[in-house]
Design a protein around this nucleic acid. Structure first.
Lengths: 195, 195
DNA sequence: AGTTAAGTGAACATGTATGTTCACTGAATG
DNA sequence: CATTCAGTGAACATACATGTTCACTTAACT
């Protein structure tokens, strides 16, 4: 048994990390362009300028690449932080600020969101993060809804939960509304459910 | 050149028609269960109790089967007819009746709708009918919106168009609302945009 | 200078789908 | 009874994806 050689990697580890990053970023790009469900390992390798085998060296299977991709994408594109409106006093302006923040976020990141929402049922690696994002949204909807005097399942809370969903943004965007107009529209809805 | 024999098919034509129908219905079932994009000709054949070649005898390719499937499904599941509310006088009850009719329709046919909406981007054969359905919905939204004193892009019209979309029904359904509750909620929204 | 290991390029086995061809069966039809 | 043809069952070529193996190059490291 030979004496173990101390082998502290520096540049090699960095190179490896860089290759890994190229793979993850190629995956992100493909997820946006063709969607996760149509993103093959072959295509990832080609896009990253790497052999297919190299991808397998870094990730055991497609699911592992996808998970790394999701993590990395969320670091680059952090969603608005609900805590930011804990400071606002409850009510109109809090609600509008939250809606606007999410609508702007959805607009910036819409390509990935469309792909993710569309392929979620088919791509197990997407389901967990999407579910957790949705439950955060629902909690936020309830928090803000309380400012409108509603309980858990009150009309304001239901309206806010619906309004905060990406699919709602997409539906209103398809009608040509900009983010401000969407927020104003939802504020008007809240006006209606209040009475 | 032999004299052409008159050969008027009767039972054979009927049998052939029945086989075709079995294929179309197998396709419908698979579209609901796994979605159009995952529905293969092999699976259709198996489900219809028919050889794969037989499917090709009836339809040149997958697109042709899908088109026949869509047509047939729409005959079996006709969407609410907008003309039905032309008789109603414009206003609250007209709007609520229309919303409720679509929500009930969506609930009955939700499996197919979810599959269709999800796979639309990937399945060209779906795009044309979906587009045409949406434009009918938009027209209806505008018609009803006028009863609320709104022009083409008024808040009531925008709200109604959004409310009539399947994705909106799905979003509210996910919150546990029944169809009546949804219709009531949207009516409250309209109350808000009116002011 | 010798060792380590990331990445290469090619091959292989496997699976699944497409679309096409062919000889055959058997019931409807004239 | 002879003909027609929808459907059968099997084969074939093609394409593309997965996951694995192998010998090789080359640069980083001690």
């Amino acid at each position: 048994m030979a004496k173990t050689r101390r082998y502290t990697q520096r540049k090699r580890a960095a190179d490896r990390e860089e290759t890994r990053l190229r793979i993850v970023e190629a995956t992100m790009a493909l997820h946006e362009e063709v969607g996760p469900s149509a993103t093959t390992i072959s295509a990832i390798a080609q896009r990253a300028g790497v052999q297919r085998l190299t991808v397998y060296r870094h990730f055991p299977d497609e699911t592992a690449v996808f998970e790394a991709c999701t993590r990395h994408w969320l670091e680059l594109n952090p969603p608005p932080d609900p805590a930011a409106w804990a400071s606002h006093e409850a009510g109109q302006s809090q609600a509008r600020a939250a809606l606007l923040a999410f609508y702007r976020y959805y607009r910036e990141t819409q390509r990935m969101w469309r792909a993710a929402v569309r392929d979620e049922p088919k791509v197990p690696a997407l389901q967990e993060p999407m579910k957790s994002f949705r439950s955060q949204l629902n909690a936020l909807g309830e928090t803000i809804g309380k400012g409108f005097g509603g309980a858990e399942d009150s009309l304001p809370t239901t309206t806010l939960r619906h309004a905060l969903a990406f699919t709602t943004w997409a539906s209103l965007e398809a009608q040509g509304l900009d983010d401000e107009a969407m927020a104003d529209l939802v504020m008007a809805w809240l006006q209606g459910v209040r009475n």
